[in-house]
Amino acid sequence: MSGGMSGPIRRSASARRLVAIGVTLIVLLSPFLWLLQMSFKSNDLILQFPPPLIFTPTLQNYASLWQGAFPASFVNSLMSASFSTALALILGVPAAYALSRWAGRGKHALSFAILVTRMAPPIAFTIPFFLFYRWIGLLDTVTGLVLVYTSFNLPLVIWMMQPFFETVPSSLEEAALVDGASTRIVFLQIVLPMVAPGIAATAILCFLYAWNDFFFALILTRTNARTAPVAVVNFMNYEGWEWGKIAAGGSLVMAPVLIFSLAVRRYLVSGLTAGAVKG
């Protein structure tokens, strides 16, 4: 990738191109920015047209959210996303390593099965999960959500980590093995540190997917384990939509993933493309 970075096509960005990039960015992000500015407006201002570009921002929408049940849903989201990410990594990383080093015949079939699990529409899991949870009492619990999220995060980990393991030269491992180290030691002490960026990228994606889930949480939670995305929909009232609160809620729900993604953008890019680019 870093081979011929000095080609004439990519060497310099003309001013015109930079302007084009800037304009495209603004146009593309304008719906998102609209939500953001709305969250700082009072309801009267929201309904005011033409929309005032300069206004005194108010935090009243956010403040009113903080008094309701919203913070609890935020914590639920945080817990279910973190725990399912951890669980998926603990289970999936060794499995991905084993698969990447496995030349056995069932490999392709197994990879395919894992991919399908990842691709299946959520509704396929919700019905059985709902009935099963109902039966053993996991409905409306964070544990229940963690399990469900693991059902799509575990395949993701296995699928995404394999290419990273494949980039680790096997000569390194063989040298260690010849020295008498066990595979477990080789894996933990030599291979794992080398794929740390891959693990980070994978973890980010797992967290993102779990945090962003709406469908499972809608069906499998009631009130105790309600997550932030479902809680936001709750501001769409029977008796009138509280636009300011909806906008503030939406902004809050997207804040963690946004901050997170921008902070680790390098990993994010490799994470988002890894599984797919490798094919």
């Binding site: 593309l28 992000l29 998102f32 939500l35 962003n212 993933v257 993604s261 921008l262 953008r265 994010l268």
Partner: peptide, 13 residues
């Protein structure tokens, strides 16, 4: 990075 924003947003948002 900023072009990636729509994709990382929660779909409900």
């Amino acid at each position: 990075t900023f072009f990636l924003i729509p994709m990382v947003l929660p779909p409900i948002v």
